Computed example of a mutant assay.
Amino acid sequence: MMPSRAVLGGGSSNNKVKYSRLAADEDGYIDLQFKRSPPKVPYKAIALATFLFVVGALLIIIGSLLLAKYIKVEHPDRTIPVLIIGVLVFLPGFYHLRIAYYASKGYRGYSYDDIPDFGD
């Protein structure tokens, strides 16, 4: 058989929580709950974006030089993949660095929350 709960009648309360009435002119909100906390800067994500940006730019430059035949190569069919990989690495790095730059300057619509922070 399960134990039953005791129901207390009347106005007596078993807990020790004290309540107070709000003043008639207050709406129940305080200014502190609407204050924004300072932004958390995702340093690891910005470092990764910088790395991707630099590596992608180097691969694009090297691929362009290979395609223009300024660099002699034995297998010229390998120049296009270097360019494609360079573009695929460059674009996310550029995108996240642009967001980080605009967020650091305080532009409206940009924040560090748009950059993934790897769970830091």
Rank of each mutant, 00 (worst) to 15 (best):
A68V: 10
M2Y: 08
K18C: 07
S111G: 07
Y19M: 14
A45C: 01
P39E: 11
K35S: 12
I71T: 08
E26L: 14
G63P: 03
P38W: 10
V89Q: 02
P92E: 06
D25P: 07
V54K: 09
V55T: 14
R5D: 12
A103T: 03
D27W: 00
M2F: 10
G119R: 00
K18F: 06
A45S: 04
G28I: 08
R78C: 05
G63S: 06
L66T: 02
P116W: 00
R108E: 04
A23N: 13
I46K: 00
A100Q: 02
Y43W: 04
K72T: 11
G11I: 13
G109N: 07
I60E: 03
V73P: 01
H75G: 01
L83W: 01
P3R: 14
F94A: 15
K16Q: 03
P38V: 12
L67W: 08
D113E: 09
I60C: 07
G63W: 02
S37M: 14
Y110V: 05
V73Y: 08
S37P: 11
K16P: 00
M2V: 09
Y107P: 05
Y112Q: 02
V7L: 14
H75K: 06
S13P: 06
S104K: 11
G28V: 09
I30H: 12
G9R: 15
Y29R: 13
Y107Q: 11
G28Q: 12
V17T: 08
N15P: 03
S111F: 03
V55F: 07
S111C: 05
V89H: 00
D31T: 06
S12Q: 08
K44V: 08
L91W: 10
D27I: 01
G119T: 01
I60M: 09
G9W: 15
Q33K: 15
